[in-house]
Nucleic acid binder design. Structure first.
Lengths: 202, 202, 202, 202
DNA sequence: AATGAATGAGTTTTCATTCAT
DNA sequence: AATGAATGAAAACTCATTCAT
């Protein structure tokens, strides 16, 4: 009823299906979600789903793919090489948290659901690894006198982990983006104890 | 085959079953794990599993229960009120990471699997929330001049998130505990950029 | 094998399934009947059964529902208000016994199986109670000088009980409908000892 | 706990078990009753049940056997050949209904449960057939001028059916024995319409 | 005599997936 | 392009029944 029964161009149908799939997956989780439920949410028949996406796994992969793509695009501004590293991190944080804030379903599907699924964890993990590498580079290039043994990758792991935890709270509507970005930025540069507001040079 | 097939006292069998269940759950995930698989791993029959634990959900809950208990016990030393807050955090970090290092299955089941399961997520989340509260208190009581707007809870969220991310790497065997503890401690007190070795007061 | 395996419209399949279910339930009883057996008898797959009826209980309820409906319809002619009460009872008896004679499976499922199943007994019992009330009214309105303490409900209980017992014999093919109707009618009006043929006013 | 754990002579244990079995069977029905439940009710272990009765079926058969025996014994007074036939029927009715009134569990197990169980129905049916034959003889020998085509067996079927229906109401506590016996006796001799109190010759 | 421990064999139920139209 | 109809395969769960002590 909701989605009409007309013949639609392929591209539109695809998005319609992915929209429905992302919604249901993020609400119920991968396993609790049946193809029936997705078809119903998209107001189409199950065979269409199979015609377009072949299998539940492929459909889920397509979800991760599209949402991941959007995620990457949202982070693109942070890659501006004209910005100094610290500004890049700041932009990255805001982009990241802002994306989660505006696309909670994406976040749930991308991270929380996908990581829990053996079959898809790697797909997400490797994306995350790239993010971590990027963060590590940012950290390194903005550190004035890096000590020889500093392992920026682990630092990045920790920072990204912190970011994910904070993102969960944003997705849960518990805190707001600006506050979270400040916190994480301070965490990165000064640690928790030395926390200051970004705009308050200390 | 693997384990004896003879009659064992109830308490022993219970542990045998939980051991097997934790293993398989942590390897395959909750949904991919069948009761058959657990029974086979424990070298017992499926009905025994049901006789002892009633249902798959209850069995999983029992796993979370036992592993969570162990986890809490592992963190107990950090609660020593004679220690100064910073030492408490240090001990907590080492206990936490050490536990994950030695009980990878526990970690996987406790956090990664349980959080992914709608039905059990809250059980774990509320434990985590307590850990976060505790951490928040530690942070607050070891901060000399807390600014009025400092939200220690969010800081703790971030720090615990960082800890979990690092724990995952430890569980994956990628880094070692001491290094990780140093990193997180520094992260807490000085931020990533100001990182120093713990034993090098700076 | 027995029935076609091709695609049939929903309504047809529904009847096919109910036919098979009524048969097997009446032959083997509720508990001894497996969904596999019904699916096999209907020459369809088990999932179809669940697709159409949801569960074994619902399927059984649907059987009771359909057969009960037929039963009620078979008794409808007796409700003709133009008939005098005694004729109504006569018609009711013939309708009832005629129905059992022609639908032995229905009778078995409706009464003998359903009454034996805790979960469905009430459904049947309440129908039977209505039948008893009706019979009680018929008895009362055709009794010339009802004594004040006459409990027509209990009489109706007895008469309906007699009818059911006789119906069982009819279902077993041991006696024929006309004879049984005569007997019950005489039982109602004159008792066993004073039995006369209906068409032989005495 | 309730039944003690002492070593008891065989005969006592047997009765203990049958008591428990009859109770549970009559409450829950044959299939809904598990051997566990019976063992628990009898406060003994399951293997004992099997030691004494071999299988669930045998146990149920033993229940029917004992209760049937008691039932027959309760009806014995009606067999007194010194009584005139009508008095025999009266006594039989009172014995029968009195038995049901005092042993509701027996009645439920004997009739309602056993008849519903394919495997035991015949055992009960043949007992019932004997009762019907007996009743038929009583009817015949107390009828002054039997018409040649009178089928006393069917009459007896109807009368016994009526008796069973009324017995169910007695077991349900809805009516009392004396009233029911009057009704059935009148039903037998005079039909419902000509009902009179037994002690009021009409 | 008595039982805690253990299981084989089956049941209902659920999906992802595919035809036939 | 689109779908109602249909199913194979597997999962959770139960229970009568039997050892080993």
């Amino acid at each position: 009823m909701a989605g009409g029964t007309k013949r639609l161009p392929r591209a539109v149908r695809e998005q319609q299906m992915l929209d429905a799939a992302v919604e249901v997956f993020s609400e119920k989780g991968f396993h609790e979600t049946s193809m029936d439920a997705i078809a119903a949410r998209a107001s189409i028949s199950k065979p269409m789903l199979y015609l377009y996406y072949g299998s539940k796994d492929e459909l889920f992969a397509a979800c991760i793919g599209r949402e991941g793509q959007r995620f990457v695009e949202a982070l693109a501004p942070a890659g501006d090489p004209n910005l100094p590293p610290r500004a890049q991190l700041r932009v990255a944080l805001e982009s990241f948290l802002g994306f989660v804030d505006e696309h909670r379903h994406s976040w749930m599907v991308l991270y929380r659901q996908a990581l829990a699924q053996q079959a898809f964890a790697n797909q997400v993990r490797s994306s995350r690894d790239r993010l971590i590498e990027l963060t590590a580079h940012l950290l390194e290039s903005s550190t004035r006198d890096p000590e020889p043994d500093m392992d920026f990758t682990i630092m990045a792991v920790a920072l990204v982990g912190a970011g994910e935890a904070v993102a969960d709270r944003i997705a849960g509507g518990e805190i707001d983006v600006a506050k979270a970005a400040d916190l994480l930025e301070n965490l990165a540069w000064r640690g928790l104890a030395g926390r200051r507001r970004t705009d308050t040079p200390g």
